[in-house]
């Protein structure tokens, strides 16, 4: 018993990095989980994939133009390239022979490839750590990244709260929303901006690719469990907080990548919900269908 408590409490006494890591990863994960619900419901999950990838060329481009890696410039670059790619995806998929998923694939892989090439040639000397951008380092959060997250995520959450009604209506029924005067396109681009900003803030903690998991997986899990939007957001946040705690301790115990562990735990929780969610879980449905069949026969 004492050993378990020791194991739970211990890491907090080893130094700053534990609470810094925990704080950062929680804020990033909660921001992603809330935004993820709206992206998921709008069938824009894969846009998160694209936005997270194109933030890399965005940051590189911002550095090339300004020569600085200050947080606001970094965010501005990522948002500019993010919105540019969202607009190009929309323009491409309005052509009859390009589906929207193909458009996403074309735009983000091209931009990502350009970013990788710039990183390895023109800006080779800059202090951009590709590995860190891609995979993150939860336990080595810099002051800069910590501040970025502490400022960005609460701001984003506040905006979501303010715009909640419009976000909800335009996610559910965009035509109706437009008819009652909700600026649907502005809400759409606002949401994308929020996703990009949150993702970039989270890069140093969890990396570009794993941030996609933090956006999509909690919402997908919550959708299996919730019947109302408010409860879906609650489940999504609950899922992500649970993943963060379990993942962090696993990573410390097994001495492995914290971001990887958090995402892996999130995936396992999704699988559990997929199988066992009351009413919508696949195993539960299978069992109740069988029970119903058996019941029907016994009545005969």
């Amino acid at each position: 018993m004492i050993a378990i408590i020791d194991w739970l409490v211990g890491p907090w006494q080893w130094g700053d990095w534990m609470w810094r890591g925990m704080l950062t990863v929680h804020l990033v994960a909660i921001g992603c989980a809330v935004l993820g619900v709206f992206l998921y419901l709008r069938r824009m999950s894969l846009l998160a994939d694209a936005l997270a990838h194109v933030a890399l060329p965005g940051i590189v481009a911002a550095f090339l133009i300004s020569g600085s890696l200050d947080a606001p410039i970094m965010l501005a670059g990522a948002v500019a390239v993010g919105l540019f790619s969202a607009a190009s995806i929309e323009a491409l998929s309005s052509r009859p022979n390009i589906r929207s998923d193909a458009a996403i694939g074309i735009v983000f892989t091209s931009l990502f490839a350009a970013g990788v090439i710039l990183l390895s040639t023109v800006v080779r000397d800059a202090h951009i750590d590709t590995h860190c951008l891609l995979f993150g380092d939860v336990l080595g959060i810099s002051d800069r990244a910590l501040w970025l997250v502490v400022v960005v995520v609460p701001t984003v959450l506040l905006l979501v709260a303010l715009f909640y009604r419009w976000l909800a209506v335009s996610s559910f029924d965009p035509r109706f929303a437009a008819a009652i005067g909700v600026p649907v396109a502005a809400i759409n681009y606002g949401l994308m901006t929020a996703v990009t900003v949150t993702a970039v803030a989270g890069f140093e903690a969890v990396g570009a690719i794993l941030v996609i998991a933090l956006i999509i997986v909690p919402a997908a899990t919550a959708h299996l469990l919730a019947d109302r939007l408010v409860s879906m957001i609650a489940w999504s946040v609950g899922h992500t907080v649970a993943s963060c705690w379990i993942g962090m301790y696993l990573a410390i115990g097994l001495n492995t990548s914290a971001a990887g562990a958090i995402v892996t735990v999130g995936g396992v929780l999704y699988l559990a919900a997929f199988l066992f969610a009351p009413r919508h879980g696949r195993l539960i449905r299978l069992l109740s269908a069988r029970q119903a069949a058996a019941g029907g026969e016994s009545k005969k």
Partner: peptide, 16 residues
């Protein structure tokens, strides 16, 4: 679409 995102990111996470 979410299924693709889930598999992509979670498998990658396991890989990491």
């Amino acid at each position: 679409d979410a299924a693709i995102g889930i598999v992509l990111s979670v498998f990658f996470g396991v890989g990491i």
